[in-house]
Design a protein around this nucleic acid. Structure first.
Lengths: 194, 194
DNA sequence: AGCATAAGTCATCATCTGTTGACTTGGCGT
DNA sequence: ACGCCAAGTCAACAGATGATGACTTATGCT
């Protein structure tokens, strides 16, 4: 029997680290890197601020560990699907999904708030281009596949921004069938020949 | 004869204010509100930091005066043009134009870096929805014009983000004819009936 | 020339920032 | 029961932050 897995868990390294990471992820996402203080994160996690440096060394390192946009693995190897199907998957992944750990928006969108820092911009570029768009570009017919892939990326990112940052009424209220249909018709020119 | 309109102009209220505004606009755009210090702005303007508060009262007020996204007046009254033509104009305005005063990107994109603040988000929403997209929505056929307009907004914002923040290679390098053509084909489903 | 006033300077404030190191406390193995 | 080591606490640091007010200096008018 475990000695004490009690309600007020005390002195649990892993749990404390996790609480810190969760709180950091949320605050960094909502308020950006510069708008977030170490003491605020620690307070949210119910933990002493000094532990941030005990466990992560610096605020910067904590940011790097907390907000890590992970490219879904379902993309790279799933060779059976067409470019159009893939775009629809990405629409759900990037725009429609909730991502509550990141304050309700996709990590890549949250990172825009910290894009004053070159590190963050570089990570953004790598994730978007090498992560998400590469596999899409490979399924495209000849004729500037990179440009087409990047325009899909633009549409996805833009929809996310409109929904979670700008808060435009129609897109925020109705992320339903009509949006999906219009999206599909806009993507169509990208996957066609020509 | 004006007493002294000399090379090293000194003690010129209007010029100092303007220098401060210019420097603030650039730094706020590049590094966001929280990433920018009053002393840095003043240093860029070659001016004492205390003058920021003399002339603007607070950092917040300076931000408000410096970065004010202005909806181009050419949009509202220009009734002769089709929705498609209007979209093309917006492409140039928002995505392709240089906006060197704002660090090379459209003010609305620069504001994303400060979107952790509710004031900024609200200004973004107002500018995008009430400013840019309204006149576009009015030129649309029936059938959810707001949603269609917002999807155009998404594409525009997304293209801007891809170019100036993410820095995706194809879009950054070649903002030329091919981009314009693909854009037009993506916008087509938005302006059509059905 | 001299004066009044606006424009610019300076030192300084209180607070907040990330970060550190020395201290205390709790839990586990013996 | 005891002692060890990891986990957590605390006070304090140096520097940056936004902001203030008293001071100085230039400029334009008479």
């Amino acid at each position: 029997m475990l000695t004490s897995m009690n309600p007020t868990r005390r002195r649990d390294r892993a749990a404390t680290r996790a609480a810190l990471l969760d709180a950091a992820r949320l605050r960094f996402s909502r308020h950006g890197y510069d708008g977030t203080g170490v003491r605020e994160i620690a307070a949210d996690a119910g933990v002493d601020p000094a532990l941030v440096f005990r466990y992560f060394g610096s605020k910067k390192e904590l940011y790097a560990r907390a907000v890590r946009p992970e490219v879904p693995e379902g993309l790279a190897d799933d060779t059976g699907r067409s470019a159009a199907e893939l775009a629809d998957t990405l629409l759900h992944e990037v725009v429609l999904a909730d991502w509550e750990e990141y304050g309700g928006e996709h990590p890549l969108l949250a990172m825009l708030r910290s894009s004053g820092h070159a590190d963050v911009r570089e990570q953004l570029r790598a994730q978007v281009c090498d992560g998400y768009l590469r596999t899409f570009a490979e399924r495209l017919p000849e004729g500037a596949p990179e440009l087409r892939a990047e325009m899909l990326g633009a549409l996805l990112l833009g929809l996310g921004v409109m929904r979670s940052v700008v808060g435009s009424p129609a897109l925020t209220a109705a992320p339903s069938e009509e949006t999906r249909a219009l999206f599909a018709r806009m993507v169509a020119p990208l996957v066609e020949e020509g």
